[in-house]
Simulated assay, not measured.
Amino acid sequence: MTHSVKLPAWDFRRGMATARVMTQVGCERGAPLEVLLHQTGIAPEHLEDPHAEIEAAQEIQLIRNLLHALGNPADLGVEVGKRYKLTTYGLWGFALLSSPTLGDAMNLGLRMMNQTFSLTRHSMQQVGDQVHVVYFDEHLPPDVRRFVMDRDRAMGPTVQREVLGRPVAYSAVDMKQPEPDAAQVARLTELFGVCPTFGATQHRSIFPAALLSERLPQADPHTARLCEDMCRELVEARNSRRTGVAAKVRDRLLRTPGHIPDMEQIAAEMHMTSRTLRRHLTAEGATFRGLLEEVRSTLAVELMARARLTHGEIAERLGYADVTTFIEAFRRWKGMPPSEYRRQQGLRPSHGRLNRPMLRA
């Protein structure tokens, strides 16, 4: 049986801890702080502010500065990734640590990816007796892809080791890049516990599915649920704090829930081409697709709670071609189908309304 969970989001706002980790490594290697923060919009005092957040685009600029200042050393991504501990992630890390099993922790972690510092996209899929975690980087600027991939992949075994209490026994690790020098191969082999395969068609880590059912040493389901609820509130709050052009697009999408406009229509209303709109959103670390997902997720919950519409009616109002596509999207947003979400939230399922005209999305 094959089961997959995909999380397309990557351009979410993130905590300042990720900038703090990277500037610490850069300064340790001799880079001046002002050089690392150049054109990022991050002031030195922001690094110590526990409530400060940055856009993905700001983090990408910081990465560019770091690479340029240090001469793009081959080991930099892995070295930085190993610095991200469970405590770096705050509530997200505590929620993982408190989960009943490794599988619960990984599923929660993927659902709440907006509480991490990942810039890559991930999918987790069970194939037979193995779990495949695939990493995607095609959406990232080419000049930072290698660093980001190395960093985000190094985060994985580091966090998993803290959660499980011991290293995860990987069956295989695939990397798209050519084989590096012997020293770098040795570092990667030590990190993953297995020598990677280089020149692969995709970035992928494989481990036995039996590990998913292993009980975690600090499991506390009640604490895990509390942390997950708090993480979800933070995710929703971050999604609502859009600024600039992204905020205007999000507000426009929310304005007419019965008829959600496409990118061309919104661009025309803002007196620009869709290409210009896309460029503005990219500069702010956002995408039209990501904003549309945020809005649809928000509206779906509101329509369930207040309008008591059927899933088919909600799907139509949100612009989905059929109810199956909506259900798949809802599972991606909330980690469960809408029927289960209704049950957990105590929402009475609706049986629809007769002789009632439908709004076309």
Rank of each mutant, 00 (worst) to 15 (best):
A17R: 14
Y170S: 03
L108H: 06
N72Y: 11
R289S: 14
D152R: 09
A95K: 06
Q184R: 14
L62H: 01
L62Q: 01
A283V: 03
D150K: 08
N239Y: 09
N355M: 11
T276L: 01
A105Q: 02
R238F: 06
E138H: 08
H38K: 13
R275E: 12
I63L: 05
R255N: 07
T287E: 05
G30P: 00
A183T: 12
S98E: 11
E34K: 09
R83L: 08
T120W: 02
E228M: 11
T325Y: 07
L318T: 04
H68K: 14
R83F: 06
L119H: 05
F192L: 02
V133Q: 10
A307T: 08
L191D: 00
H51S: 13
Q265W: 09
T197W: 07
P157A: 08
V144K: 02
V80T: 04
L216W: 13
T189G: 00
R296N: 06
T189R: 08
A183N: 10
L254S: 07
L291I: 12
R332E: 14
M1A: 12
R187I: 11
H38T: 07
T101V: 06
R29K: 14
V131R: 00
V173G: 01
S99E: 14
V133E: 15
H46C: 11
S118T: 14
A186H: 09
R161M: 04
A267F: 02
A209I: 08
Y89F: 15
V235Y: 06
M1H: 14
V21K: 02
Y341H: 15
R308A: 15
S205T: 15
R20T: 10
R29E: 07
D174I: 06
C231S: 12
P73S: 01
D181T: 07
T273F: 00
A315L: 09
R275V: 13
A186G: 02
Q345I: 05
N65L: 02
L97R: 15
P221E: 05
V159C: 03
R153E: 10
D104T: 08
F330Q: 01
L140P: 01
V159N: 08
D75E: 15
P257Y: 07
G193T: 05
G71N: 03
P337V: 03
G103D: 03
E236G: 02
D129P: 04
L212H: 09
W333H: 11
V163L: 10
A224K: 10
L110C: 12
Y170D: 07
Q61M: 06
L309Q: 10
M272F: 02
G156F: 13
D49L: 08
D229Y: 09
M113I: 14
A74L: 11
D143I: 06
R153Q: 11
Q345C: 12
Y135W: 11
E53D: 05
R317D: 00
D251N: 10
R331Y: 13
Q125G: 04
D152F: 03
T40A: 01
E34D: 13
S99V: 10
R317V: 07
S213H: 15
A237F: 13
L37A: 02
S4Q: 14
T298R: 12
P142L: 13
L86G: 15
V131E: 01
V173M: 00
G258H: 03
R151H: 13
Q115S: 05
A56Y: 00
R153S: 09
P196W: 07
G199Q: 09
